[in-house]
Design a protein around this nucleic acid. Structure first.
Lengths: 233, 233
DNA sequence: CAGTGGTCTAGACCACTGA
DNA sequence: CAGTGGTCTAGACCACTGA
């Protein structure tokens, strides 16, 4: 079997969504229309759409039709995932906007968190991550230069800081604190949200090669991001 | 439609697995056997088994047959803590206010989450937990009566529902989703917070003895609670 | 009412496995 | 070879929605 017909239809639908041609909430062609267009039986179209619905891409209502699902991203509480992977795995487009990528003198708070000397310099990167052009994460990251000396040479539009760190300083341990807060003016502007939109904030410290590699503050609009984990005690 | 036929077959297979009658690695009856036994068409059996395979319960090999999936170990990274312990461990006073503790007819959403029949009754407990007399958690919990029949006999001022469940139905697995939302009027009143105070909401399903034991929605004022985890990848 | 998705049937052809 | 699962067809009946 070269390619199953239901798989071809699934790929077509996912492509429309990830390319942004079909936006969340859009009513997509009915089973009958797709049946005619692809010259297959309705069961084949039905399987394609049913699977996409169970995978979270579509939302179906009997009597009404099939809609592109609203963004309800789910991330993992347990694993540290690269946001680029996470988004592309959902079949969506990821894009990063680099706000800063600089070397700067460390503040006392950050020096304590990174366990570096108070008079040293650290790398700081501030990026906004977009899912299908909707901002979903503001990443404010401080990196210990000793563990990733070439960080600022990276083109963050092509590789996220997190992915680069995975590569050069394999993760040994992580600690994260999750909380719910209103956004400050800076986050509001970059995430394009209102002053009363609650945000899910993850503060994460990561260890590599015996030292603290990075401290990141990740701010997500509450309506566009949630964390999920499944585990055994 | 009372119950779709493919759903009846799925439930039957899941029950064999969760009851331990079919162990991991076991070859289960073929599509043809199930077709004859349930007097349905092969497509219907196929859908049931295909969905169970995509949900991770089964493993199928063309030409050989369908097997019960091996247990995929999930590393224990996040713990589920009893809030009473958590608060007293910080040296603070814990107190619980019981708002409801009733048996009520299940809604379709909750029936699906607890995997019980749509017409059954479930236990529901709504409590507010206080840390030094400040409300820190609104707990809205639905419990499968089959797994904790005596739940409503407990005095929740002396033992939290969560602690009781640990005791009578040892936790096998858990799944949680964490998000940030504004509170509804009910939560606002019980937690004594304003309409713009973001809340950290944890939705948790727990499994015990092969079934879903409980579904809990835990709402915390963002300013009074946060989640923390430390783990290795 | 016409149109939607939800489900099911009774066949069919196929690739694959092990005997 | 007989038996397995993978896929597909061309119908069917149904519950549901909005006009």
């Amino acid at each position: 079997m070269a390619q199953a017909r239901f798989a071809i239809i699934k790929r077509y639908v996912k492509r429309q969504i990830s390319a942004g041609r079909w936006l969340p909430g859009k009513l997509i062609p009915s089973e009958n229309e797709l049946t005619r267009h692809y010259r297959v039986s309705r069961m084949t179209v039905n399987r394609a759409l049913r699977e996409l619905a169970s995978e979270g891409f579509l939302h179906r209502v009997q009597g009404l039709g099939t809609y592109v699902a609203e963004l309800t991203p789910v991330s993992s509480l347990l694993k540290i995932r690269d946001i680029h992977e996470e988004i592309t795995e959902r079949g969506h487009r990821h894009r990063a906007m680099v706000k800063f990528a600089v070397e700067e003198p460390v503040t006392p708070d950050i020096a304590a968190l990174l366990e570096v000397k108070p008079e040293s310099a650290v790398f700081r990167t501030v990026l906004v991550h977009y899912e299908n052009d909707v901002p979903v994460q503001l990443e404010d990251r401080y990196v210990n230069p000793a563990l990733a000396p070439d960080l600022l040479k990276i083109d963050f539009k092509r590789e996220t800081p997190s992915h680069y760190l995975f590569r050069v300083a394999p993760l040994a341990e992580a600690e994260q604190v999750v909380e719910s807060r209103l956004p400050d003016a800076f986050a509001r502007r970059l995430l394009r949200i209102g002053p009363h939109e609650p945000c899910l904030i993850v503060r994460r410290r990561t260890w590599a090669r015996g030292g603290v590699a990075a401290y990141a503050v990740l701010t997500h609009p509450g309506s566009r991001y949630r964390l999920m984990g499944r585990f055994k005690p």
